[in-house]
Structures are given as structure tokens and as C-alpha cells.
Simulated scan of single mutants.
Amino acid sequence: MQGHPGRTDIFLGLRATSTAAMAATVASCANGAQLAVTRLIVQQHEPLAIALIRCAIAAACLAPLLRRSQRPAIRDCATILALGGVVAGLCPWLLTIAMQYTTASRGALLICTSPLLTLTFAALLGQEKCTLRRVAGCCCAFIGVAVGLSGQLAAGTPSAINRGDALVLLTTVLLALFNVCAARMLTRYPAHTIAPIACLGGAAILFAFTLAGGALGGIPLLAAKDWLALLFCGTIGGAGVLLLWSWAIEQASAARIAIFVTAAPISAAAVGVILLSEVVSPELAAGTGLIVAGIYFVYRAEPFAESQA
């Protein structure tokens, strides 16, 4: 009895997508947790030095993968280094600074707009269709952000978006651009080739900024508990997140994977409560729920159509 190649392909495709979804969820949870840990460290230390050490640890973890990796063309290598300078260098630095002014859970909530921005950029570049259903989902998610931030307005804060929130939003725009651009590069090279090179690009950018800003002097002031926290941020929150997220985009589209960033507020809030005694307000919980609902509405699966795409 002969098998059905079409059904086998669909099964394998769904299996790969499910594995990518799990990888993206783990990466997002780890990223949310490292936001809370970063906020714990950065209250007493220079953000640039913290970002550099975190990236250096991540680069050291990923460097052995280069031995087994396909060597990219010089032009592609320059592109990957540039992408890494943004996602592994500039973005973590901005987030580290942001954690001085906002909470981990608020930061993770704002990062939840990344799937919507990814969809927008992908649509502008012709990679995704922007339908009425997706626009409605975008509106629902942005309302969720507004609801999540409303607690600070009620508390008498002068503005809904503080300096930390603005930095997180800027970082989110850069991350969305990375999702779209990395998806193109991941069609040429596997994740275990791109992740180490990207991390080296981030380390180079941060090292240059650290030298220019004279921030190296703060490194000897780090205590043992700070180094333990940085070890977590560099290994799991740095190397692990970058590798898993890149691999997930390699297995599925950037727009489909971006939805799993919504796991970040849950882990950030949990770790924030444990380490920082942060309060998870009803507004924050409701806002997160609206964001999850909106993004699900945007990327709601149509299995039959997607399996034939």
C-alpha cells in the first residue's frame, strides 16, 4: 500500500512548525526572565558595561558553533554582523538602560507589539498580506498596550510613556526589523551559522561604545551575585534566546513566530514579583490578555491553506 506524499509533507511541516513554536516560546520566556534579572543588576551598575558582559558571555557560548558552520560570503557576513550589531548589541543596551526607568513587566508588555510591527514591515516589503482581520487584531493588541499602561496614569504619573517605555518601544521597532531581515538571511544559512556571527557583531559594537564611553571602570565593582545574574543573562537570556529564536524563524515564517513573544510578559512578571517585589496590576494582566487575543486574531492559523503554501 503506497503512502500519500502530500499528507506526509503536511505532517512533517506541522511537526516542524510545532517544534519551532516550542522553541520560540522558551526563548520568549527566557527573554522576559532576563529583563527582570537585568533590572535587578542595572540599578547599581553602568548599563553599557552590563550589556557588554552579557553579550561577551553569549558570544563565548556560541563561538564553538562556528567550527561546524557554513562560511557565508563576505557580503552576507557583513549583513549578519550588522544585524547582530542591532539585535545582540544595540537592543540589549537600550533595554538595559530602559530597565532603570520602567519595570520588567511593563517592558515585556511593550515588546508584545513586536508581532504587529513585524507584520507591518513584512507587508510593506511584500512578504505578508495585510488583511482586514489582521488589522482588527492589531487594533485589539494596541488597545491592550494602552490598558496595560493605564495603571500608571491612574497613579498620577505625568505621562503614560516614560523614558524607559520609549526606549523599549524603540528596541521593539529594531527587533521587528531584525525579524524580517533575518528571515531572508535564514533562507541561505542555518541558525547555528547566523547566531554566532550576529553575537560577535553585537559584542564588537558594545565594546566600541564601552571604550568610547569609558564604562570599563565599572566592571571591577560587580559583586559575585551580579556575575551570577550576568551568567544567566548571557547564557540562557543571551545565547539561548538568540539561537532558539533564529532557529524558530528558520523553521517557520518571521510573522508566525513573532506571536510567541507574548510569553515574555508572563515570565517577566513572575520573575519581577519574585526578585523585585513588583506588583502585577489588574490593568497589566488585562492588557496582556488583550494583546494575546489580538495577536492570535492576527495570526490565527488556517491549517489547510498554510500547509499548501
Rank of each mutant, 00 (worst) to 15 (best):
L40G: 11
F207D: 00
I219Y: 06
E302S: 12
T25A: 15
T103G: 09
A155T: 15
G234V: 05
G84H: 03
V86R: 02
A154E: 11
R15S: 15
F178G: 00
R256G: 05
S281Y: 13
C130V: 04
V279H: 12
A198M: 13
F232R: 00
A182C: 14
G217L: 10
P92L: 03
Y189P: 03
A82C: 14
A21C: 14
V147K: 03
A63Q: 06
T288A: 11
G294D: 06
S150L: 07
L177H: 06
C112R: 01
A122D: 06
F207A: 13
V241G: 04
L66A: 09
T38F: 06
L52W: 14
F142S: 07
A166H: 07
Y299R: 01
A198R: 01
A269N: 04
T25I: 15
E128N: 07
A286D: 04
L52H: 06
T171M: 14
L109Q: 02
L284S: 02
Q43T: 15
L124D: 03
H45A: 10
L221Q: 10
T113Q: 06
E128I: 02
A182L: 12
A98E: 06
A20N: 08
C112S: 13
E283V: 03
V292S: 04
F11R: 08
I295G: 05
A59R: 03
A36K: 08
F232V: 08
G6V: 13
C55P: 02
A203I: 06
T131I: 04
N162Y: 03
V280K: 00
A56V: 14
I266M: 12
A73N: 11
T288Q: 00
G237V: 03
A154C: 11
R7V: 13
C91Y: 09
T8C: 08
A301C: 13
L14P: 05
A183Q: 11
L200W: 15
Q308A: 10
E278I: 12
L175T: 02
C61F: 13
P282A: 00
A264K: 06
A30R: 01
G3D: 10
T38R: 00
A82Y: 05
R15P: 00
T17R: 10
V168W: 06
P64Y: 00
G84Y: 05
G32D: 07
V271F: 07
P115N: 00
L216F: 15
V168M: 12
R163T: 13
I97W: 11
G3F: 15
A270T: 11
Q70T: 14
Q43G: 15
Y296C: 13
V280Y: 08
Q100W: 05
L117F: 14
L35D: 01
A229K: 02
F207Y: 09
P158G: 00
T262C: 14
C140S: 07
T96R: 03
T288Y: 01
I197E: 00
G287E: 02
V145E: 00
R54I: 04
L119Q: 04
T102R: 02
D226V: 09
F209H: 02
S114Q: 10
T171P: 12
A82E: 01
S159G: 11
Q251C: 14
M185E: 08
S246R: 03
C55E: 05
S28T: 07
F297L: 15
R75Y: 10
V86S: 07
W93D: 04
Q152P: 01
S28L: 08
